[in-house]
């Protein structure tokens, strides 16, 4: 359903953009003409008529677009999964560009390897130095391959921990962006201690005295998401999802049939609103109609406000209170 709507909307986007381009040219001509004399104006009468026609057409297409987008107001869980995985959805690098300044990337776990599926470093948020870390997916298939589709190996989690330990040392708040199909289920990942790496991150993250805020921006699946997500505050973009594993995996484990993913989506309670109700998510951050990929700057504005609000609250707490606040968030569940 959402796929169809988005296809129509994207087609309209293209038509509108084309018409607007043409109109802009005509407008330019007209403006120039008006600047000269009234005689020339008569010559441009035809052009003026077509300009009016264009504008009418544009507003017609725009209202059509509005109509289609309004269908996106109440999305089903599986439609949100579709948006959460959209290739053009903003990812960690986009968030770093859009929300932070002075980013300095830190690479490697300094033990064995550099895992590109985790991206992070130091940056300023509203002028304050923070440590920022996220799963990196990339937008194109080449980037996806390079970043292993955002599925970290133990080295990625250990890199994240190295960065977070430094944040604790230098008293920098930690902001993480979560968007992963899960930890990579590969042979080497197992041999290098995937379970151990995640476990250690969970244990250590529970101890930090600096504020930790996590934003689920796309899909947050399994321990692979939680490994950088033990936070004082968990924010979720409106169409992001957070769950024990992918709906396909869920269906295949429960019913031995991954085709039943839509049904799984309904049962899993994985949407931002569900998780807000469950007490896992603290704030749902609004996305533009039709998904975050449609307007990055709107997403950045909304997220900036939410992040700053929560960070300001957490900065009021003593370091011991910050640690306790985070532990209590999870202690209360179950």
């Amino acid at each position: 359903m959402i796929e169809m709507i988005l296809r129509k909307v994207e087609k309209l986007d293209a038509q509108i953009a084309e018409l607007e381009n043409e109109t802009a040219e005509v407008t330019n001509d007209l403006v120039k003409a008006v600047g000269h004399s009234s005689e020339v104006l008569e010559e441009t009468e035809d052009e003026y008529a077509s300009w009016k026609e264009h504008n009418k057409e544009i507003s017609k297409l725009k209202s059509m677009r509005e109509y289609f987008l309004s269908e996106c107001r109440n999305l089903a869980p599986d439609e949100r999964v579709f948006l959460a995985r959209h290739a053009m959805r903003p990812h960690v690098d986009d968030f770093i560009d859009g929300l932070f300044t002075d980013f300095f990337e830190q690479k490697g776990d300094h033990l064995f390897d550099e895992d590109k599926s985790i991206y992070g470093g130091i940056a300023r948020f509203h002028g304050i130095p923070v440590t920022v870390i996220g799963h990196r997916k990339g937008h194109t298939i080449e980037e996806n391959m390079e970043y292993n589709f955002g599925m970290p190996c133990p080295e990625g989690y250990r890199k994240a921990l190295r960065l977070m330990n430094q944040a604790e040392k230098f008293k920098r708040p930690i902001i993480t962006f979560i968007d992963t199909p899960g930890a990579y289920p590969g042979m080497e990942a197992e041999e290098h201690g995937q379970g151990e790496a995640i476990a250690v991150n969970l244990a250590k993250m529970s101890q930090f005295h600096v504020p930790v805020i996590s934003v689920i921006t796309g899909e947050g699946n399994s321990g692979g998401a939680l490994a950088i997500g033990v936070a004082n505050r968990v924010l979720m973009l409106e169409n992001a999802v957070y769950s024990i594993l992918s709906p396909e995996g869920f269906a295949s484990i429960l019913w031995k049939d991954s085709e039943r993913r839509k049904e799984a989506c309904e049962l899993m309670k994985l949407t931002a609103l569900d998780l807000r109700e469950a007490g896992v998510c603290d704030e749902v951050v609004k996305e533009p109609l039709g998904g975050a990929q449609r307007d990055y700057s709107a997403v950045m504005r909304n997220l900036d406000v939410a992040l700053w609000k929560h960070l300001s609250e957490l900065k009021q707490m003593s370091p011991a209170k910050v640690k306790n606040d985070r532990q209590m968030k999870y202690r209360k569940i179950g």
Partner: peptide
Amino acid sequence: GARMQEGIYSLMQMAKTAAAVEEFNA
């Protein structure tokens, strides 16, 4: 592994138990 029927609540137990062990450790 996880108890599928308890979804995200199951996932959150990982953070809860790991934190308890780390406090014990400390």
